[in-house]
Nucleic acid binder design. Structure first.
Length: 166
DNA sequence: GCCAACGTTGGC
DNA sequence: GCCAACGTTGGC
């Protein structure tokens, strides 16, 4: 059987970091719901990741921004690939955007499934202090992107914080 | 609450 | 296409 058509985009699992402000939507809320839409992303680069690159099964680090302290709080999995963020058409929604229409949606979202909440938060300060993570996007100065690709190396490094503590 | 960094808008 | 003005993000 010829399986050479199976390209990297099919085979490789990708890793992501998704920011959320816990006062708006926290990992506890995701845990309670089990799965959730990731609506409200209004940045083109982040939109492109959700629309074009995220695949079912991709692993997601959940990050609490605008929190005290900010940091990574747990794990989720992409469970539905990009589709139009219809909150953009809801005039009562804070995510309403009149430029986006059902025929020509501008904004997209994915669904994520809760996996686990870490036994403790890994703070941004800790991430910044880890030489193994010096080039991780989230620790870069002025890093505002709310959905970021994460290398497998960085992802495994973050998980290792817990394996070594047991 | 401050403000640096960044993204978007719109006049030209 | 430039870039100043403005708006937003998010750490502190």
């Amino acid at each position: 059987m010829d399986i050479s058509w199976i390209g990297e985009d099919v085979m490789s699992k990708r890793y992501w970091l998704m920011k959320t402000e816990p006062s708006t939507f926290s990992i506890d809320e995701l845990a309670r719901l089990g799965t959730s839409q990731w609506e409200g992303v209004r940045n083109y680069q982040a939109r492109n990741f959700m629309r074009d690159d995220m695949r079912v099964g991709d692993c997601v680090l959940i990050y609490h921004s605008n929190a005290t302290p900010p940091g990574i709080v747990g794990l989720a999995t992409v469970c539905r690939e990009g589709y139009p963020d219809y909150f953009a058409q809801d005039i009562k929604s804070t995510y309403f955007d009149p430029k986006s229409t059902p025929e020509k949606p501008i904004w997209f979202m994915v669904d994520v499934a809760f996996d686990e909440k870490f036994s403790r938060l890994i703070s941004l300060e800790e991430l910044k202090a880890d030489p193994a993570l010096y080039d991780m996007l989230v620790v870069q100065r002025g890093s505002r992107l709310s959905i970021q690709p994460v290398s497998e190396t960085h992802f495994l490094r973050v998980l290792s914080y817990f394996k070594t503590e047991k």
